[in-house]
């Protein structure tokens, strides 16, 4: 029997899941990934690997996932539709499964104009929801887009993202419903700083019964400094950092701001833990992976549950 997704096991066995994000390096060195994997091992259930995030060229998500897998972690392969057409996407889905990768997160991706290849042609042959649907059909029916049969279906736990803080607000939950209907099984959200708005969104999610259709992991990003909080609030599209968070960060001495950022992250996780309809957290510590164990411990989420993987 081939290994299953650890994330899936943790969630189906009714545990509060913890995932973390790992950004691959801008170079070919596998050791960077191994090191990040070492830090996270044992503290999280699965590790997401970003796919050329913000349109910046990095070591491929697929390769990094394969490396993490060798290190004994359960990787979540992020795949964006920005860079690959349906031929390449479906081929990589098969490839990922053959490498023992058991989780996939389907996204549209940041627009190429934000990255370091702004002259690149944005592919966007299919969108994230069409991609989710395609992967689900590949897995459950063994069929690719167009209906041709696969000799062996991929084995993947299928995820998607949601941003409760973007507009139009009331449509956000409709879109989540579409992702669930397309076949997503777990959802990782945009980083949460505005808990009030998030709570309002999750209420809408519950009203539609979507929390019983998909597992929802709330996104958490520890702030490193007041400057980062201000930058995210102003410059990063789709991010909602309310003033009270910014002033709280500003209120402490710069040398203690990291500590404060960690405290906010831990408090957010505690709040999410007791929020009905939330099934876990996804910690995105940007270029700060080594803080994850501390956050997990302080949030009382360590040790992680043992699931039978084989």
């Amino acid at each position: 029997m081939k290994a299953e997704s650890n994330l899936k096991n943790v969630l189906t066995q009714h545990n509060f899941a913890v995932t973390a994000e790992c950004g691959p390096p801008k170079g070919a060195d596998p050791v960077v990934i191994q090191k990040k994997g070492d830090i996270l091992k044992g503290y999280v259930d699965s590790v997401n690997v970003t796919d050329n995030q913000t349109g910046v060229v990095r070591l491929s998500s697929m390769a990094a996932c394969a490396i993490l897998r060798q290190e004994g972690l359960d990787p979540v392969l992020q795949m964006v539709t920005r860079d690959r057409n349906r031929i390449a996407l479906q081929s990589d889905v098969l490839g990922a499964s053959s490498l023992g990768i058991r989780n996939i997160l389907c996204l549209s991706g940041d627009h190429q104009s934000f990255g370091n290849q702004p002259q690149a042609k944005g592919v966007f042959d299919i969108d994230s929801i069409q991609f989710i649907q395609a992967v689900r059909r590949m897995r459950d029916e063994g069929l690719i887009i167009g209906g041709e049969k696969l000799s062996e279906p991929p084995r993947l736990f299928i995820g998607a993202v949601a941003n409760p803080f973007a507009d139009p607000f009331d449509y956000r939950v409709v879109r989540l419903g579409k992702k669930a209907a397309a076949g997503a099984e777990f959802i990782q959200t945009q980083c949460i700083y505005n808990l009030k708005r998030f709570a309002e969104w999750i209420r809408q999610v519950r009203d539609r019964g979507l929390d019983r259709k998909v597992y929802i992991l709330g996104g958490v990003t520890p702030l490193k400094s007041a400057r980062m909080a201000e930058y995210m609030s102003r410059q990063v599209a789709g991010m909602d950092v309310p003033d009270n968070i910014i002033s709280r960060m500003k209120g402490v001495d710069p040398k203690d701001q990291r500590r404060e950022g960690i405290a906010i992250a831990v408090e957010t996780i505690m709040a999410l833990k007791y929020m009905e309809g939330v099934h876990g957290v996804h910690i995105m510590a940007i270029e700060w992976e080594d803080v994850v164990p501390q956050i997990v411990e302080e949030a009382g989420l360590y040790p992680r549950p043992e699931t039978s993987r084989e």
Partner: peptide, 13 residues
Amino acid sequence: AKGLFNGPCGGSK
């Protein structure tokens, strides 16, 4: 900008 057919991306504001 992303040619999406199934709803707005997470950046619509």
